[in-house]
Amino acid sequence: MQVEIRQYAQQDAGEAAAVWNEVVEDGVAFPQTELLDVQSGHAFFSAQSFTGIAYDAENDEIVGLYILHPNNVGRCGHICNASYAVKGSLRGQHIGEKLVLHCMSKAKELGFGILQFNAVVKSNEPALRLYKKLGFQQLGVIPGGFRMKDGTFEDIIPHYHLL
């Protein structure tokens, strides 16, 4: 598989929403609870500062994506936030790492100075390992900050990286 990343286009809406929805349905990483369809997915992905689509260059299959947007406004508008989704059957193949690296570069290109993750779930060990590898700094722990799919609460660990 040869993974490349490009900007989201409207024709990606259905496939991108399906990948996004896998993570939402898992209920252990994204705060969203509502699933996207083609229409709501297009509106959501188009509203971001940038949506990156990871695809297999050999067959054009979407294998992952990320959304990038401001974390706040005004005097904190230089801080951005991002979320990453990788197709469940392809996790563990460094697609997430490619997405994060591309996102960091794109964020800097768009004029952001800091990439901040507000809610990395403590049990999301692959993400925690990746962010440590890429030099993100942990900001502490928010006890019980994430409601898991089963209704229990898990700690979250905010992170940041200077761009």
Rank of each mutant, 00 (worst) to 15 (best):
P158E: 10
T51S: 06
S123L: 11
I62L: 10
Q137G: 02
E154G: 01
K132I: 01
Y160M: 14
A43R: 11
A119T: 13
L65N: 06
N72G: 12
V38T: 14
E125M: 11
E109G: 02
K108D: 02
A57P: 02
G144M: 08
G77L: 05
F112K: 07
I157E: 09
E4A: 13
I62G: 06
G151Q: 14
Q11L: 06
G77M: 07
Y66D: 11
F112N: 01
L101H: 07
N71A: 10
H161A: 12
E58H: 14
E15N: 08
K98H: 08
A119N: 13
H161G: 01
I142S: 10
S123Q: 14
Q93E: 11
A13K: 06
N72R: 15
H42N: 14
Q11A: 12
F112V: 02
A43D: 07
V38C: 03
P70Y: 01
F44G: 00
E125T: 15
K132T: 12
Y84I: 15
V100Q: 04
I79L: 10
Q116L: 08
A43C: 04
M1P: 04
S89V: 13
V73W: 13
G96I: 03
G27K: 11
S46T: 14
L128K: 13
E109T: 12
Q137P: 00
S49A: 13
N71H: 15
Q93V: 04
Q48S: 02
S46W: 07
E154K: 11
K122A: 15
V63S: 03
S83Y: 08
E61P: 00
V73H: 11
I62T: 07
L101M: 12
Q116E: 09
R147I: 12
E61M: 09
G41H: 03
N124M: 04
Q39H: 07
D155R: 03
I53Q: 06
E22A: 01
Q32D: 09
Y66M: 10
E4N: 09
E22Y: 03
G140Q: 11
L139Q: 15
F50H: 13
L90Q: 14
W20L: 00
L163D: 03
A119I: 06
Q138W: 04
R147P: 02
V24G: 00
F30M: 12
L68S: 01
V63I: 09
V24Q: 00
N21Y: 07
T33F: 02
F153S: 11
V121A: 03
D150A: 05
S89D: 12
L99T: 05
R129E: 08
F112A: 03
V38I: 08
I114Q: 13
A43W: 05
R6A: 00
R129N: 12
I5H: 01
D150I: 12
G140K: 14
D37G: 04
G140R: 13
F112E: 01
G140A: 10
P70E: 08
C103F: 01
R75A: 12
L110C: 01
S105Q: 15
F146L: 13
V120E: 06
S40E: 03
L101S: 08
V100A: 02
I5F: 00
F50Y: 11
A13I: 05
L36T: 04
D56K: 06
H78Q: 13
G77A: 14
A107T: 05
I95K: 03
Y55G: 03
F45T: 01
G77W: 10
H161L: 15
G27V: 10
A119V: 07
L110K: 10
M148Q: 13
G74Q: 14
I157H: 00
E25M: 02
R129C: 05
T152W: 05
S40L: 03
